[in-house]
Design a protein around this nucleic acid. Structure first.
Lengths: 331, 331
DNA sequence: CAAAGAAATGAATACGTAACCATTGAAGAG
DNA sequence: CTCTTCAATGGTTACGTATTCATTTCTTTG
């Protein structure tokens, strides 16, 4: 492996000068620069990023701990995050984390001395939160948040759940189901709370069988759908906690030869890019500004890294219903 | 920052012993291990991956240069690649590369001294290919391949294009269009060749206006679609070079109030996960084994890294038509 | 023309780890 | 009891860079 010392020898200068040519060429006389550059080309020299990181204590790398891409929400956020970070000169280490392998992911990120961590996957009372704070390692969560209520970007999840239920109630539905996720996650928790609150505000009694908190796996969602549809009084409307769940439900419905929205109405939350696709046209609740949460978060994270400002980020985007073709008034 | 030297001092041993406790604890007496571990816990010591990489010349990091995630093909492959690599103990640096920023992506990967590179985005006669070979840096391409015809995993693209056209011909279509991508990319090139060959084999004359090689952007595909549909004799069947293009075409059609497959038939290539979704049911051509190309590629890459075997990987998966609901016989 | 200051370069060092070689002490063989 | 072997540990160095400080050379100015 050819190092800056090799280049120095070849060019007849000191290693220091080679380093200067790479980083602060203004401090080096023109002919020297040319000489060194020639040697660099000839020897095919490529600086070693690890050596640099070691001495500078800066890696230009960010760890992204994302949810799985089969959820289109994470497709949108991952794209936004990686592209913005790359534009700003940061590499991104991506991991798709299920809640089990979380600790493994944390340590991998920390060992690698990343400059910052951006993640969706954090539990409400995850102990890692304090660790990061103690380590003075910039980090931010998007979509989910920690009970400490700091360093997050989210949509107004309570309001989203509320609007979701209200939309169905306004359409005259009375048999309204909730298909959500684990309540240990702030997102699902708050959306469900909003849903409940809307039902209560409209003096609407909620059947216990109409509420299922899945583990968000396709399999679990399908079995939830089947269980509800086999009830004597099956739901006519499904409020899904995410667009991903909504799309799974619609898939399930179509495989049972049910037509959406004629037979059942489905509404999601997130307003994922895919939801506006011609074939899908999912009615959903999403940010009014239509700003990508991942984008908002990575902007803030990079600000934190570069300004070293400790200002505490708390962003909650307002939401509205995007009325498309998967919900319909009951006749 | 607390280093192994600090731990050593705190535990009253040498730095060497601390290193041994971390890596080869069998060589250290039990009480010593315990003492050191206690210090590690107390001081909150975390080893520095860069220092390790520097001395070992091994980073446990792989660079993934993927196409953009709005193409569902790359959603599937990225998931497979990242998860498998993580399972095997490798971190993955992901970049979503457009063909312009390719060189930037290369150098970022090389500077970071990754253990290997896995990429989709390579042009047929990309000079980077030889560079990697000269550097003795393990790498593999998936989906696309280089003219050197080495280190790749692909489906039988020629056959895929052939079957795509044949499918439409068998359904009785005569006005068959091709919507593809840049011919500088092996994938598009070979698929188009296959398409042409099928047309020729069936003595079918191809109209020039029925062939458009887009830049694969949504905008470009839409304008291609509009251009063709405004022809006096517009196509009744679209062979799309990828599922992503096919789904865009279907989206365009629906926005012009055309019904697929009643008004126009559309077939894709890739058999992306999303294509079997209940709402989409895209007819497409894909690998018979239904193995994810990204998975196949990352397996091979890690073998190359760990065995240091120079065996030249060439995998071409056979294909078949997955007949779903977006194509229909002409009456 | 001398003094002072600025520009250009080099020598030495630190970053944190793993690996190599050296040393110590204990156990076993003859 | 001595010699050999082995287990356990420590001292030192290398990895490749950026940085600090020192030195040399050039330029400016009174």
């Amino acid at each position: 492996m050819v190092s800056s010392k090799d280049v120095a020898k070849h060019a007849g200068v000191s290693q220091t000068t080679v380093s200067r040519v790479m980083n602060t060429p203004d401090l080096v006389k023109k002919p020297t620069v040319d000489k060194v550059m020639a040697s660099i080309d000839e020897l095919n020299y490529i600086p070693n990023g690890h050596a640099r990181s070691l001495v500078q204590n800066k890696t230009n790398t960010i760890a992204l701990l994302s949810g799985p891409l089969h959820n289109p929400f994470f497709v949108d956020t991952t794209t936004a995050i990686v592209n913005y970070a790359n534009d700003k000169g940061y590499r991104v280490n991506v991991q798709f984390v299920n809640d089990q392998k979380l600790n493994e992911a944390y340590t991998s990120a920390v060992e690698n001395k990343v400059d910052g961590i951006i993640m969706s996957c954090i539990l409400i009372d995850d102990p890692i939160f304090e660790k990061f704070e103690r380590m003075d390692l910039p980090f931010i969560t998007y979509n989910r948040k920690h009970k400490m209520n700091k360093h997050f970007v989210e949509i107004d999840n309570f309001e989203a759940g509320y609007l979701s239920a209200k939309h169905m109630l306004d359409l005259g539905h009375t048999r309204i189901a909730w298909v959500g996720g684990p309540l240990t996650v702030s997102t699902f928790n708050n959306r469900y709370e909003g849903f409940l609150h809307a039902m209560k505000d409209h003096h609407h009694q909620l059947l216990e069988e109409y509420v299922i908190h899945t583990d968000t796996s396709k399999h679990d969602i399908t079995s939830a759908f089947k269980r509800m549809m086999s009830l004597e009084q099956s739901p006519t409307a499904f409020c899904a906690a995410t667009d991903s769940i909504a799309m799974n439900l619609i898939d399930d419905a179509s495989k049972e030869n049910l037509i959406v929205p004629q037979d059942v109405s489905v509404i999601g939350i997130d307003n994922v890019d895919l939801s506006s696709h011609g074939l899908i046209q999912l009615t959903t609740v999403g940010s009014i500004s239509e700003q990508n949460l991942g984008y908002l978060a990575i902007c803030e994270l990079i600000k934190m890294i570069e300004n070293k400002k400790n200002s505490c980020v708390k962003i909650t985007e307002s939401v509205k219903v995007f009325n498309r073709n998967t919900t319909k008034a009951i006749q």
